[in-house]
Design a protein around this nucleic acid. Structure first.
Lengths: 233, 233
DNA sequence: ATCTGTGAATCAATTCACAGCC
DNA sequence: GGCTGTGAATTGATTCACAGAT
């Protein structure tokens, strides 16, 4: 449990707090939009307003990347984008494979945000023969038996589970056997995987329940919600 | 900004820490599964193992609901389910309306986890006439102009945004005008809404980026990932 | 004068550890 | 003996506030 490589890890990589890591992609998204608009400089105040957080947090978060701002001026947008991408590892491409070609699998494969952000969909698999052979977003649906070969030949590192809950653990087992290193799980189930695999679960129903709680809270207390709901990390 | 109703809010409602609120639906999900299996009692250790967290956290979280366990024995599953549902406000039904009948809107409307968890889809709207009139998961797609009338007549309290990013702010404005109280946003955009509305944003691409970061981290440091990735709140 | 970068202070969440009950 | 409930201790995240750079 204790950190066995305290001061300087092998590559000298700083350890960025989890909460900050979760915000960096949001800043990145905003900065990419600004580049499209032609904005070249911005201050922590401006970025904070766009991201809906406070300026001190922005400065602290960005300081984990190094000191890339200019005092009295602000940050260079393009350079900041470069640094955030570097830190998040977005200068490599991480290929993903989607397991489950149902409604959700369909939506995910079509979702341009994956490819656009450097996570190309290298394959889609399903266990249902009637779905195999179709093309979704330019990718052929293949049988789940081919999962391992897809992962190996394409060098896929992330598996996305878009199956019904009952099949999710099976899908996870297959992904692990196939050799992926991380799993993004959209089934409403807690998965059991080896310690060497990282899992991140997003449960769309849970998000609604959380929202419902704060809705009820504000009704019961008669209070407004400003700043009340954690806007999801 | 300071909390103006410190000790006892109007209804005597305790304020549960955000982090705990986010975990309650996960416990609930697991407990519902146990009921189906016929399990009637369980300890904090067991629930902790199933949820992938530690037992002290489970006990602390559940203690916010009141003292409903039995020392030396554990918790009664059915009663715990009842208490969590009460706390989360799941004894009322919260109707939702989905804006955007594209791939994602389709998947969300079909996603049984919404209805199953007490969030029935009262309507789906789209701005594209070619999609209006279709039926998705038993609900007719209607034109976005009818949004307000749907919200009023059905008593919808939550709007789900499943549009492309460019249309998301417009969708949010329409939802606010129509009178929803909360918004669940799946477009990769930061929304601007009045303080009286709560928003929770889920960006599917961002989830991958975060996963990618920890993947890179573990490669660079050569360390394993046990406990390394925050499993999404 | 403006805006960053960061220690110090504050606030929140987690974990420990044990008294109290079954 | 086993398990909950909870203060106390700890760890982590956020915010403050200001020195330092341009």
């Amino acid at each position: 449990m204790a950190d066995l490589a305290p001061a300087s890890a092998p590559t000298g990589r700083r350890r960025i707090p989890d909460a900050a890591v979760a915000r960096l992609p949001v800043y990145l998204q905003i900065l990419n939009g600004l580049i499209a608009d032609g904005t070249e400089q911005l201050s922590s105040d401006q970025l904070a307003a766009l991201a809906g957080v406070n300026a001190a947090k922005v400065r602290k978060d960005l300081s984990y990347l190094g000191s890339y701002g200019t005092r009295g001026v602000g940050y260079d947008v393009a350079y900041l984008v470069y640094q955030i991408k570097r830190e998040l590892g977005l200068h490599n491409e991480w290929k993903v494979v989607v397991v489950g070609a149902g409604n959700l699998g369909n939506a995910l494969a079509n979702y341009s945000g994956f490819t656009l952000r450097g996570f190309p969909v290298a394959g889609i698999v399903d266990i249902d023969d009637s779905k195999v052979g179709r093309t979704i977003a330019g990718v052929k649906v293949r049988h789940v038996e081919e999962l391992e070969s897809i992962v190996r030949t394409e060098g896929v590192s992330i598996g996305v589970i878009a199956t019904p809950p009952v099949s999710a653990q099976q899908a996870a087992d297959l992904l692990v056997k196939a050799g992926v290193r991380s799993i993004l799980n959209f089934a409403s189930v807690v998965l059991t995987v080896p310690d060497t695999i990282s899992v991140r679960s997003v449960d769309l129903g849970v998000e609604l329940q959380i929202l419902g709680y704060y809705e009820q809270l504000s009704r019961d207390t008669g209070k407004d919600k400003r700043e009340a709901v954690p806007a999801c990390r």
